[in-house]
Design a protein around this nucleic acid. Structure first.
Length: 558
RNA sequence: GCGCCCGUAGCUCAGCUGGAUAGAGCGCUGCCCUCCGAAGGCAGAGGUCAGGGGUUCGAAUCCCUUCGGGCGCGCCA
């Protein structure tokens, strides 16, 4: 549709220039979907943008373009409106053809349309998300990361890009040592030995579970000696299994798990440190190695390698090596999904990678704000170290995977997300998930009724006379078809919430239509019934396609 | 103090990358099933787009500034 209008406008401007009525050439022909349906199907503001160069009023320019345009068969009408907009209305035949095409292609029609990631083409995308270290069950906060990352991957995949989903983690290092010590303490306590939890140790109940399981499988002989490595490994294995189980419930999977330890073992971290030193971007102080903040335009210096006998790198050093590794794997787009608390660290990493001469232009950071849980209007306090947080599993248990996914995708990532448990559990219209799913279930029910009435929609579908549909019905059809450009815009902006909001609107429009007695889909007029079933099928397909992309089920009945 | 994000209806939030009369849900008020799913719909009230400057044909959107809130500023990740 856009293409048709742009080429129509382009031709008109060309002719107007040839005849001397216009002298300038617009930098771009802007096209938009008007908010108000009275303004047609597509609008363009070219006349407004040309006003300055032409020295004429926008309306006058719009008139010139209008007169000079030759309408293709798909465009019914072109008009000048408001301050100088050019509004286009497509012919019913055009819309009917789109409807037939959408029904023919099904969900495929609604997939985001592929665009160029880079000037030279290229379609390799990497999405790194979740990346929670295996120190405990994933929390509600991680949930937003997981669902956001997975859905962005889904959108890009649907658009036809080659997507790698990656989970970056660290199972060595300091926190892991602490984890092992915590399990050991619980193990001994389980045997009745008075062993204190290390200071800052992990207090969660899951540590006790792991200790008990270890005791069940290995008996009491681990009490002799330290065995810290064994405790740590057992904990990591159990926790990772747990994380993967939780992800499965949300239909989230990864193609690759990338271990920070491999970067250290392979010498890549050392290479980074050497390169930084060589370029005088690092220095030693207090026995530690620091990243120089000033030349990188960072607010302060940051530690790369800790002091002490172990010379352990901090988190950011391997992360620099990791990002260089990503760039070297020549992805055309690299997406990092992380919470607002990691912004500073990410800036340091990118600045260092850039300073080392790597092109960071393919990296896009998706930063999401925090999640708060509300129950009956009261905020639930969450602390990870104490066992007061709510795990993602518990959240799924309480409200279900569909609701968890939809709620996390019902805010733009820049906004803080208030997860209202009461609302989430309600199977009522004020709960957006159920509102949308209900529309799908209702539509499914219509087709069940049609079958009962002996109407074989599949056989007659291709012959539906769409000209029988009224204006309200065509508006509903156009709205359904609009899912496609919305999908594309959402994928391109990496903003899945646009799809959620669109689905809510589409569902609302359908409910409104459905509730009017005059709009009974199955009626006595066979031709009209078939046409309306065609429309119902279109809406149903659109809703299902949208929900599917969000990883939410589209139920046939509820 | 510095960096990032946010401030839109009583509440929770959209606003399609600068467009036409700023929207939705909840809540409030009053209505609608002889009817394919009332798990639904209709109507009404409700706004200084935090305040102030600027940019231009045009600003909730871009820039500056003030105020208010969140997050970070660790040899944790």
């Amino acid at each position: 549709m856009k293409e048709i209008v742009v080429s129509c406008l382009g031709g008109a401007i060309e002719r107007a220039r040839a005849s001397g009525q216009l002298k300038s050439n617009p930098a771009a022909i802007g096209i938009e979907a008007p908010k108000d349906p009275a303004h047609g199907d597509v609008a363009s503001n070219v006349a407004l943008t040309m006003a300055r160069a032409e020295g004429k009023s926008p309306r006058a320019i719009a008139e010139i373009i209008k007169v000079a345009s030759e309408l293709p068969p798909e465009i019914a009408e072109i008009s000048v409106a408001g301050p100088g907009f050019l509004n286009f209305r497509m012919t019913p035949a055009y819309w009917h053809a789109e409807m037939v095409r959408a029904m023919g292609e099904g969900a495929r029609y609604f997939r985001p349309q592929k665009w160029e990631l880079r000037p030279g083409g290229g379609d390799r995308v990497q999405v790194e998300f979740l990346s929670a270290n295996p120190t405990g069950p994933v929390t509600v906060g991680h949930g937003r990361n997981a669902v956001l990352g997975d859905t962005i991957a889904r959108m890009l995949e649907a658009a036809g890009f080659n997507v790698t989903r990656e989970y970056y983690f660290n199972d060595g290092g300091r926190q892991m040592k602490l984890l092992g010590e915590s399990v050991r303490a619980r193990y001994l306590q389980d045997m009745g030995i008075d062993a204190p939890l290390p200071p800052d140790g992990y207090q969660g109940e899951y540590i006790c579970d792991i200790a008990r399981e270890l005791r069940a499988s290995r008996g009491d002989n681990l009490a002799e000696g330290e065995n810290l490595e064994l405790f740590r490994a057992a904990a990591v294995e159990a926790i990772f299994a747990d994380i993967n189980r939780t992800c499965d419930r949300l239909k989230i999977r990864f193609d690759r798990y990338f271990n920070e330890l491999d970067l250290i073992k392979s010498g890549k971290v050392k290479e980074v440190l050497d390169a930084l030193r060589k370029q005088n971007l690092s220095f030693e102080r207090d026995g530690a190695v620091w990243l120089r903040g000033e030349p990188l335009k960072l607010p302060k210096d940051a530690v790369l390698v800790r002091s002490g006998p172990d010379r352990e790198p901090t988190y950011r050093t391997p992360d620099i090596a990791y990002h260089i590794d990503k760039i070297n794997r020549s992805f055309d787009l690299i997406i990092d999904v992380f919470g607002a608390d990691h912004i500073a660290e990410h800036q340091e990493v990118i600045a260092a990678v850039k300073a080392l001469g790597h092109d960071t232009s393919a990296i896009r950071a998706i930063i999401y704000q925090f999640v708060t849980l509300t129950r009956a209007g009261e905020k639930i306090k969450m602390s990870t170290r104490k066992a007061t947080y709510v795990t993602l599993d518990e959240l799924i248990d309480e409200v279900g995977a569909d609701v968890v996914r939809f709620f996390f995708l019902f805010r733009k990532s820049d906004s803080q997300l208030d997860f209202d448990l009461e609302l989430a559990k309600k199977q009522a219209p004020e709960n957006p998930v159920f509102y949308v799913q209900y529309a799908h279930a209702r539509l499914s029910s219509v087709f069940r009724e049609a079958e009962k009435a002996g109407i074989d929609f599949a056989a007659s579908g291709g012959r539906a006379n769409l000209a029988l549909l009224g204006e309200e019905e065509m508006a509903l059809a156009r709205r359904s078809l609009a899912l496609r450009p919305v999908m594309t815009a959402a994928a391109e902006a990496l903003e899945p919430h646009r799809i959620s909001f669109f689905l809510l609107e589409l569902a609302g429009e359908f409910h409104r239509y459905y509730n009017q007695p005059a709009n009974r889909i199955i009626g006595t007029d066979r031709g009209l019934t078939v046409a309306r079933l065609f429309l119902a099928g279109l809406i149903k397909t659109a809703i299902a396609a949208g929900l599917d992309l969000l990883g939410v089920t589209a139920p046939e009945r509820m």
